[in-house]
Amino acid sequence: MILSSLTFHEARTRLKSNGLYFKTGPFTIHFNTHIENITKNFYKLYSENQIFEQEVFSDFHIKIDLPNNFRRWVRPQVFFYLDNEIPFKPLPFNQAYPMLEWGMNWCIANHSHQYLIIHAAVLEKNNKAIILPAEPGSGKSTLAAILTLNGWRLLSDELALISLKDLSAIPLSRPINLKNDSIDIIKSMSETCIFSDVYDDTNKGSVALLKTSNESVSRADEVAIPCFIIKPKYINESKASLARVSPGKMFMHVAENSFNYSVLGKEGFEVLSNLIDLCGCFDFIYGNNTEAVNIMNSLVANN
């Protein structure tokens, strides 16, 4: 059963009462909220996600709500609860929906050390997965969105989950977090793409979430084998270039962009070494979307 098999009203009632149990990638999340804007956007962006009729075992029990005190009325702030703890500071009321996405990322990055977790997008085509690790602002999410709109399967936008057992990339297909100019770039590419509201003035600027493809969600159980690690950089109008990076330098780059490389200790070092051995490592500069798609397509072409 998927979320869209409930009416909006039913989904809203569940979120307000006993909570809604839904699946995202390998995780089951029990989610509660009274905040209308979250409900509206969640219903729109997670419509294809599997849900459960009854109470089920959940990896995370989360709630986003206003506290029960006078702050409700003056400059209201929303709180993220993981079970009965408040892991980070509240945010202004108008950022409630992005807080759901960031909060889920926080839960996974801090509690799921059964994976090597890299701050990276992961996409797959022809059974070959590419990992795009990068600092914020490098155009990683933009490239992920462009490829998703061009037939690639999105495995992840923010958190690459790498199995410690066999190095496969585990799908965690969630909405893509787009910032500032990228929002309009992607909107102009496709009329059918579905967006959340636009949230201005977050600490990352304006933010909007793009719904991922239905295929990406429905194939959430199909892992993919990483073949390339690509460090993307968007430079406006620049001609595309794909240049090899030494494995050692890519190792350091991925380690620095991993949430739990250091938690995993010796095992982290060994798993990341093996992952680097498995993949071709590249720097990728792009300035034109069509050109970027072509180059990525040819990289994973079957020949």
Partner: peptide
């Protein structure tokens, strides 16, 4: 135990190892 419970316990153990 089901895999997902094992995963959570193993994850916690790795944190304690750290």
């Amino acid at each position: 135990l089901p895999d997902k419970i094992q995963d959570i316990l193993v994850s916690a153990k790795k944190m304690a190892d750290k």
